[in-house]
Write a protein that binds this DNA or RNA. Sequence first.
DNA 1: CTGTATCCCCCTGGATACTG
DNA 2: CAGTATCCAGGGGGATACAG
Lengths: 132, 132
Amino acid sequence: METTAIDDSEAIVGDLYSDACPCREILNLVASKWATLIIGKLEDGPLRFGQLRRAISGITQKMLTQTLRRLEQDGLVHREVLVHMRPPQVEYSLTELGQSVTEPLAAIRDWSEQHLPDVQAARRNFDALQPN
Amino acid sequence: METTAIDDSEAIVGDLYSDACPCREILNLVASKWATLIIGKLEDGPLRFGQLRRAISGITQKMLTQTLRRLEQDGLVHREVLVHMRPPQVEYSLTELGQSVTEPLAAIRDWSEQHLPDVQAARRNFDALQPN
DNA sequence: CTGTATCCCCCTGGATACTG
DNA sequence: CAGTATCCAGGGGGATACAG
């Protein structure tokens, strides 16, 4: 039987998770500069729009709205409009899915806190050696 | 005491990044579209430039070089020039630091494989409800 | 084979102003 | 208070050509 029909070259080193890697989507989601901060703030419990804005210094209304929409769309955040309130208030909270993503996020955070000094040292060393 | 002593310039930025965790730097590093793929390929062992390029379909030489430089600069990847070879060859491998980052990366990957269907379902549901 | 150098598009994200 | 609408700068990233 002809098992050699496929590209015979040594080249491809197993493409188990090349383009189709689902983690890329999640990384894009989570690395969008504000998403992790928002998720982090909501870990402690529901917050209203203004509370979030004040809790995350430097964020603009636009980015807060935009990121919340995306998180809501992806099922990580629940948006609850308190209609009867005057003035109207909107409360955001993590869904179960959102809760579950805090675990891998914590893995990244832990690694960062543990190894960021090494990364920064590597950067300084690199800069020192490369007369760029 | 005068709290106005702050140097007018970058108070906000500094506050932002101290309030945030160091994980932002790592997320920026790792979410740069190609970095995780390169790290993933190198998990199995050292690879040469051309092998990496062929293993990661769609990547351009520019992005491969650029991302490898960054990973090298941050101490995650080791670059070994095989000088005596004709034509010259360059071999890339994960450093210990690079090896260690594969663990939190695996956490993200696992979560993605497990929950991406939920995310996609949430997206479809959101689109269905929001007549945009 | 392994890069470097341009050109250029597009998207993210920031500032600002306006609405319900 | 919550959200939308513009305008705009910067950088990531693709295509291509050239070099050691």
